[in-house]
């Protein structure tokens, strides 16, 4: 005959109840993890599938823009450029959601190659140059001489630096200063490091929001989110990429006085 709680001592009874609770919590945790994995799989699938129709829209719009089916007048061409620009912005957002979903599902892989800090910063500068020129900002680049080459995932680290620079451009008024600095950082558990800094003289971030900006879907305040048409994933993805390399990312900022975003990267090829 099975024992009931009433046959047990108070301690045994309590122990049995706790074991039962533990089992229930373990089942609930497994169920939540399962639901989370399904949600991430859905995000990953939907973002991948969104690229296909967007590709078709962009190609058709480019066919019209390039006059393959007949010439356009100036206003028609301008409208077509608006369609193409909007589609590319949407594609970037879809790409961010896909990266975020992969990161959350631990599916991101670091493919390391060796490259110089100078070449990577130059690549990022060239990509952002049109935006900087449009806002008439002054970008200065300061790289410590003879930095060792990095053995890292170039695409991921370029994405981090681009994201920080584009945020600096976006949240800094017209005509003001931006800078990128790279120098030797303090050695970490993974050996020698390089310290990157992306700074601006823009609107800044209040101290209570310094940690929050790296959380997914974070929008610091309503005015910032209105002018910033992103997914709210950019800095969360940057943090994921940096941490995958065994580095660290943080911000120092005073509201109204600009921001300085820093990240460190171990130089060597050893896995974190």
């Amino acid at each position: 005959m099975p024992r009931t709680y009433t046959d047990q001592s108070p301690v045994e009874e309590r122990l049995a109840m706790l074991e039962e609770q533990n089992l229930r919590l373990a089942r609930e945790l497994a169920e939540l993890r399962n639901q989370d994995a399904l949600k991430m799989q859905f995000l990953s699938n939907i973002s991948h599938d969104l690229r296909t129709p967007l590709t078709a829209v962009i190609t058709h719009a480019e066919i019209l823009r390039d006059g393959i089916l007949g010439g356009l007048n100036g206003r028609q061409r301008e409208s077509m450029l608006g369609i193409i620009g909007g589609c590319h912005q949407l594609l970037d957002m879809v790409g961010e959601i896909l990266t975020y979903a992969r990161g959350a599902a631990n599916q991101l892989v670091v493919t390391r190659t060796e490259f110089t800090v100078e070449s990577m910063i130059e690549q990022v500068r060239a990509l952002s140059e049109p935006l900087i020129m449009k806002k008439e900002q002054l970008l200065t680049i300061d790289i410590e001489p003879e930095l060792p080459p990095l053995a890292a995932d170039r695409d991921q680290i370029t994405h981090v630096l681009s994201n920080l620079l584009n945020n600096a451009i976006e949240f800094t008024p017209k005509g003001q200063r931006l800078w990128i600095r790279a120098s030797r950082g303090a050695p970490s558990d993974h050996g020698a490091t390089v310290l990157f800094e992306v700074g601006d003289t823009g609107i800044g971030i209040a101290p209570e929001h310094h940690e929050m900006v790296f959380r997914e879907f974070a929008q610091v305040d309503a005015s910032a989110s209105r002018s910033h048409h992103g997914t709210g994933l950019g800095l969360a993805i940057a943090r994921t990429f940096v941490e995958l390399h065994g580095g660290r990312i943080w911000v120092e900022s005073i509201l109204g006085q600009g921001s300085r975003f820093y990240f460190t990267l171990p130089v060597g090829a050893t896995e974190p």
Binding site: T52, T55, A56, T59, H60, I63, I68
Partner: peptide, 16 residues
Amino acid sequence: DSALVVGALHLLLSER
């Protein structure tokens, strides 16, 4: 396998 992408690329390449 996307008829939309085939349509766009077909048009682009045949016009070229």
